[in-house]
Simulated assay, not measured.
Amino acid sequence: MTAQPPLEQRPVAELMTLDLLTIAASESALMAWELMCKAEVHHLPVTDDEGGFLGVVDAQTLTSTWNAAAPQQARRPVTTLLPSRPPAAVRPSATVRDAAGAMLESGTDYVPVTDDHGVLVGLVTARDLIGALAGVERDAAPRSGGMPSLYRIEPVLPAHPGHGGMAPD
C-alpha cells in the first residue's frame, strides 16, 4: 500500500469538481439565482456563446448586489456580476497549496482550473478543500476524453392558451 502525499502536495485534479453547471453570458442575474437554487450550487461558471470561459459568478456576489427595490436589475446580464478581472486560475497539476493560495490572493472561495489553452476543466471550492481535509471520498465520475462535463440549462416558458399554445384538455 502506497501512502498518499500530504493534502497540500496533492494535485487539484484529484479533488476538483468536474461536472459543472454553467450559465450563458446573455442570461440574467435572476436566471443565475434560479439555477443556483435548483441545482443547490454556490458557483456558476459563465460561458460565451462558443462555450469559452469568462469567469465565475458566486452566490455571495449575487446576494450582495441584489436590490429588491429595483426589480429590473434582476434582468441585467450575469456578466455584470463578474469581477473586473477574473481570478487567477490554476492547472490540474497544481498543488492544493497553490489552489488555496490563489483563493486567498483573489479573495474568493473558489479557483477555476483551466488547461494550457485557458479552457475550463474544473473548479475547486473551499468546500472541496474542506471535504478533502476531512477525508471525505468523492465519487469519481469516469472521464471519457479529457473534457469536463459542462451543463447548460435553457429556460422553457409554458405556453398560454390563446397565445399560440394548446388549450388544456
Rank of each mutant, 00 (worst) to 15 (best):
S144R: 10
A89E: 02
Y151C: 08
V41R: 06
T114A: 10
P142C: 06
E14W: 08
L120E: 05
S149M: 08
Q73F: 05
E40N: 15
T114V: 15
R10K: 12
E14G: 10
G145I: 10
I153K: 00
G118E: 10
R76F: 06
H43P: 04
D115A: 09
P155Y: 04
R10E: 12
V121S: 01
V119P: 00
P158A: 15
W66K: 05
A141S: 11
G122F: 02
R76L: 10
L20M: 11
L82R: 09
T125F: 00
L21I: 15
A102S: 13
D19H: 13
E154N: 06
G52V: 13
T61Q: 07
P161V: 15
A140H: 06
E105D: 15
A94L: 05
M166Y: 07
T47L: 15
A88P: 09
G131P: 00
S28L: 09
V57W: 01
S144K: 02
L120I: 13
E154M: 05
G135M: 07
V136L: 06
G52N: 15
S149H: 09
I153H: 00
G165D: 09
D49E: 15
E14F: 07
W66N: 06
L129A: 03
H43M: 12
P87W: 01
S28Y: 08
V46E: 02
T17Q: 05
H160Q: 12
Q9R: 14
A25P: 09
M16Q: 03
T22E: 05
L157H: 07
A102T: 11
P142L: 10
A100P: 02
G135N: 08
A89Y: 03
G52I: 11
T125K: 01
D49G: 15
D49L: 13
A39R: 07
P86C: 11
P6L: 08
G131T: 11
